[in-house]
Design a protein around this nucleic acid. Structure first.
Lengths: 95, 95
DNA sequence: GTAAAGTAGTTTATAATATAAACCAAATAA
DNA sequence: TTATTTGGTTTATATTATAAACTACTTTAC
């Protein structure tokens, strides 16, 4: 009756990051931090998890002299996000 | 940009319970357990939390000789669920 | 009647998760 | 040159979820 919710996406911050990334070619750490309002520490950790899950790819470069962490959603990430949304619909479309 | 997700509803089981209760006058422990597939322990704990939050009311009675725990969603519960759904829309309607 | 199995839960211990706070290295500003 | 800022990472702690053990019965089978 109730589909499993992907635990990797069932996190406020990770979900926010994914939903930001899905609408954009790529985004860097600072952008994600501003948009989500997360702390650096938290964001760092959650980006790691999404990366390890293969939901996003992370590239570390430099913008000028400053380090710059660029995130990009992967095909698997899009798929997972899609599934998550569908599973949620099963919960919320009962009201 | 990203609305806070009510942490009390941001739990798979609690959300499932709420979404079950929202469509029905009331439901007992056994019904909720069957529908959600949760373990008794987990369900007991999460019902407690929803109750303490004032999202559901819990009445302990007997059905025949057996104890029977009846749950019913409250006005506040409906409101909270509604807000949760709206907040989620903010996440998922970006795809 | 009594032992075994089932019902309807609760409590407790532990694992997983999220988050904040402290930290670090390099760059820029005063 | 010594702050201060930027862009993070690491670590410690709080929160949450879950399973397992337990309680208090009731029903069934012998």
């Amino acid at each position: 009756m109730f589909k499993e919710l992907d635990p990797l996406l069932h996190s406020q911050l990770r979900l926010a990051v994914m939903s930001l990334l899905i609408g954009v070619e790529e985004a860097d750490f600072v952008f994600l931090k501003e948009k989500t309002g997360a702390t650096s520490g938290n964001l760092s950790v959650q980006i790691d998890k999404l990366n390890e899950a293969g939901y996003i790819s992370v590239t570390k470069t430099f913008k000028g002299k400053m380090p710059c962490t660029i995130c990009k959603i992967t095909k698997n990430g899009i798929l997972a996000f899609d599934n998550y949304v569908k599973a949620l619909q099963g919960y919320i479309n009962k009201n």
